[in-house]
Computed example of a mutant assay.
Amino acid sequence: MLHRTALCIGINQYQHFPSATLSGCVNDAQDMASLLKDLLGFEDSDITRLSDQAATKANIMRELKRMVEGALAGRYDHLVFTFSGHGTQVPDLNLDEFDRADEAFCPHDLAPSGPQWDRDHLIVDDELHDLFVQLPSTVILEVLLDTCHSGAGLRAADLLMDRRPRYLPPPSVEAFRDIEYRHARPAHQKLLEKGLSHHILWTACKQNQTAADAFLDGAWHGAFTYHFCREARASGNHLSRAKVLAKIRSDLGVAHFTQTPQLDCEAVTRHAVMRAEAVPANVTPLPTDMPT
């Protein structure tokens, strides 16, 4: 029997940046929590939800550390982490990126420190990697990121269609110039390196695209999360993740979204969407490098 725990984050409001308010992220967290209960049998007690004022860096990292520590102690063998909110980029300080840029996630208490973001109020992809890499191979981690880390993919049509990019630029011209010509590897690629290749990571768009906060079916949602939940429910847990990805991409294309969701995993794509069992060693998983 699987021992599960999940953390669902949705941030519409940013303490120091009221002009950066989004509309669909809290709905995303609720939608993902409902999907985990209805499709995977999670209980309410298995799921922690943090939204807006509660979704500070300290609270998010505390919950993630709780999950990892519980997995290391043998209490959990299936972890799910979903994040809907703004993304950004920061200069690479530990020089592990050839292009000297890191991707980052914006908690509610995001704040500047001089010309740059305050690292005490920002979640850099290195922090997530260093935390998750502790997980043993017997524990499945599934991460869904409905955010973006570049503003380059915004199209004029998006502004006419009740759509907003989930991206916050650096807080100053100086900070922007620090990363202007640098293109960080997507966070999900970094999370798959050095010991994390057996986990599952979904992202809402390519590195050079924006993830949309969109008005769909009478309410605001992340375009990726909305279609992910819809296709997961429609599949009844009978389609592989690769096939669900293909359906989501098709849905977004039909709706004239410009984002292309990405899926990275090696060990579990043969099994139905969001199911946590690992593929036996002698089974070759289905490919996940879907056409883009």
Rank of each mutant, 00 (worst) to 15 (best):
V133Q: 11
V133D: 15
V133T: 15
Q134V: 13
Q134I: 14
L135D: 04
L135S: 11
P136L: 03
P136E: 11
P136S: 12
S137N: 13
S137I: 14
T138P: 08
V139P: 00
V139F: 09
I140K: 06
E142G: 10
E142V: 13
V143N: 04
V143W: 00
V143R: 04
L144C: 00
L145S: 02
D146S: 10
D146M: 07
T147E: 01
T147W: 04
T147Y: 02
T147I: 09
C148Q: 05
H149L: 01
A152Y: 05
G153Y: 08
G153R: 00
G153M: 00
G153F: 00
L154T: 00
L154W: 12
R155H: 09
A156R: 15
A156G: 14
A157K: 05
A157M: 03
A157D: 05
D158E: 13
D158M: 01
D158L: 00
L159E: 07
L159R: 12
L160P: 02
L160W: 06
M161K: 11
D162Y: 09
D162A: 05
D162M: 08
D162K: 05
R164E: 06
P165T: 09
P165W: 01
P165C: 03
R166T: 03
R166L: 14
Y167V: 05
Y167R: 10
L168V: 01
P169D: 08
P169Q: 09
P169S: 13
P171T: 06
S172G: 04
V173H: 02
V173A: 07
E174K: 03
A175N: 08
A175F: 06
F176L: 01
F176Y: 08
R177T: 08
R177D: 14
R177I: 13
R177A: 14
D178F: 12
D178M: 14
D178V: 13
D178T: 15
D178N: 12
D178I: 14
I179F: 03
E180V: 02
E180H: 09
Y181N: 13
Y181E: 15
Y181P: 09
R182P: 11
H183S: 07
H183L: 15
A184D: 04
A184Q: 01
R185Q: 10
R185K: 05
P186C: 03
A187P: 11
A187I: 01
A187C: 04
H188Q: 15
H188R: 10
